[in-house]
């Protein structure tokens, strides 16, 4: 086994570019998944089954099929329908959509964990429906679910390399490009492998600190 530090040095500039794209995709994907997940949860509480049923079926379908094929679907089908986005935009949307089907379960559990007394108090104070949600239920529910949402952000980080398959040059894409140009596979792949471990470890430390502050 040969290890060439020169190759590592040559790869580093590409690595930083890739890391930036990875983090960008992660941040935007997280935001989409947090918002969409909340939308799904609230729709699943709709009074009519004509809303609950389709939402439940679609999210179940998205959750149980591979993100990679969903990426291909969006990347190739949308342009055929006349909608052209950049690869990164498509990828971010696909990741956000995929993970929103996970975060919706987290939100649901959080909302169900709000004590019944809170609902009754809001009713007794004659709070309007919107205010009950925004001022009483959601602030308590979201505080509870932050750790679980954070775990999904870490999972999302580990799924961002899939964006490489639709030509996004994130960390793995950069590593593959570099390997093919210089015919050195060991160094770039190992560098990004270690980078993933470090980033997800740091993220989990951060999350634990956040958890201590929020959940009492």
């Amino acid at each position: 086994m040969t290890w060439d530090w020169g190759a590592v040095r040559a790869f580093l500039p590409h690595f930083w570019d890739g890391l930036l794209v990875t983090l960008e995709a992660l941040a935007l994907g997280s935001v989409i998944s947090f918002v969409l997940g909340l939308v799904w949860t609230l729709l699943m509480r709709a009074p009519t089954r004509w809303v609950r049923w389709p939402v439940g079926a679609v999210t179940e379908f998205v959750r149980n099929t591979p993100l990679l094929v969903q990426l291909f679907f969006l990347f190739y089908v949308l342009p055929e329908r006349g909608l052209t986005f950049s690869a990164l935009t498509t990828g971010v949307f696909a990741i956000g959509l995929h993970y929103s089907t996970y975060t919706m379960q987290v939100y649901r559990a959080g909302i169900e964990a709000v004590p019944a007394g809170q609902w009754e108090a809001a009713l007794a104070l004659n709070l309007p429906r919107r205010r009950t949600w925004t001022a009483v239920i959601l602030p308590q529910a979201i505080r509870r679910v932050v750790p679980a949402l954070g775990n999904y952000v870490i999972s999302m980080l580990k799924d961002t390399p899939m964006l490489m398959a639709i030509t996004v040059l994130e960390m793995l894409g950069r590593a593959r490009l570099f390997s093919q140009q210089h015919f050195q596979f060991t160094e770039p792949l190992t560098v990004i492998g270690v980078a993933f471990i470090l980033v997800s470890y740091l993220a989990s430390l951060l999350l634990r600190a956040l958890e201590r502050r929020l959940v009492r």
Binding site: L157, P161, L189
Partner: peptide
């Protein structure tokens, strides 16, 4: 900590 896809690349290359 590492991604499954990175692992696959590693095992293959």
């Amino acid at each position: 900590g590492t991604s499954a896809l990175v692992m696959i690349f590693w095992v293959f290359f």
